[in-house]
Design a protein around this nucleic acid. Sequence first.
DNA 1: CTTGAACCTACAGTCGCTGTAGATCGTATC
DNA 2: GATACGATCTACAGCGACTGTAGGTTCAAG
Lengths: 149, 149
Amino acid sequence: MKEYSIGQMSRHTGVKATTIRYYENRGLIPSPARTRGGQRRYDEAALERLAFLRHARELGFGLDDIADLMALAEAPSEDCEPAHEIARKQLAAVDRRLTILAQLREELVRMADADDPGHAGKCRVIEVLGDHRLCIGAHDLPDDASQML
Amino acid sequence: MKEYSIGQMSRHTGVKATTIRYYENRGLIPSPARTRGGQRRYDEAALERLAFLRHARELGFGLDDIADLMALAEAPSEDCEPAHEIARKQLAAVDRRLTILAQLREELVRMADADDPGHAGKCRVIEVLGDHRLCIGAHDLPDDASQML
DNA sequence: CTTGAACCTACAGTCGCTGTAGATCGTATC
DNA sequence: GATACGATCTACAGCGACTGTAGGTTCAAG
C-alpha cells in the first residue's frame, strides 16, 4: 500500500502543500494518518479525492459546492439530480461571465486600437472610460458582477 | 451648484455607499465636503470621477490600475501611451480569461447536459469530475488561473 | 417636534488561498 | 552514530475588493 507525503500529493495533483492543509482545515478532505513525527501520510483514496477536488476547482466550482459534490460522490444515491443542479448552476455562472467579458473585450479593443499615438488631442482610453455614453452597448452589470470578472 | 449625498451618488452610479467610502479610504476619490453634522456632500466633479471609476471597474481594471488612469486623466500630458499600455494589458488579460472560460464551458455542457436522469449507475457529473481523462482537452490552467475565473 | 430613513465610524468577515516565522522531522551521506 | 539539508510542521497575518454589522447621529418631511 503506497503512501504519499504532502509534497508528493502536491506534485501528483498540482495542488500546493499549503492549499492541501487549507482544504483539510476546511473539512474538504479528511485528516490523514501521521508519522510518529507528525507528518501527514496519504493513501491512494486521498489522492483521488484531491484530484477530484482540483478538477472541480479548475472548473470554477466554489468550495461549498465541491463539498456537496463530494458528499454525493461518497454516498451515491440513484438520484444524481442534485449534482446536475450544481453543474447547471455553474454553467449558468460561466455563461454570464462570458457575456460580460465579450462586451468588455469589444470596448477594450476600441480603446487600445484607437490609433492616435502621441497625438496632441484627446486620448481615447480616458475618454471612453470617462463617458459611459461612448460605450457600444449598455454593459450594465448585475449587482455582484465583480465576482464574475 | 448641485450637491449630492452619498446615497444619491450611489443611485446615480450604481456604486454602493459602503464602497464609495471604501474608495475614499483607499485614496481613489478625494474626501468630499461635509455638512455641519458630518455627512458627505459631493459635487458634479466627484460624480464624474466616481462614474469613471465604476466604469473602469466594470471593465475589469484593478484599483491600482485605475488610480494610474485617474492620475493620467487629471493631469493629461500629450502622451497617452501609458493609458494605452494599461488598456492593452487589460485586453490581454480578458482574452486569457475568455479562452479559459470557453474551454470550461465546453466541459460543463458535456457534464450538465448528459441526459441520463435517474440512471442507476454512476452520475455523469461526478464521473467526469473524478476522472480527468474524460476531459476533452487538457484544460490545465496557469498557476494564477483562479484570479481569471 | 417627532419620526424614520439616511448617514456616520470602526471593525470583523467574505473567498480561496498565499506567505511568513520559527521549529521539527526524515533521509542520505560520511 | 553524527551531520547536513530539504521537507514538513503549526499558527497566524495578508491579499483584493469589497460586504456586513453594531451602535450611534443627522437630516428632511409632516
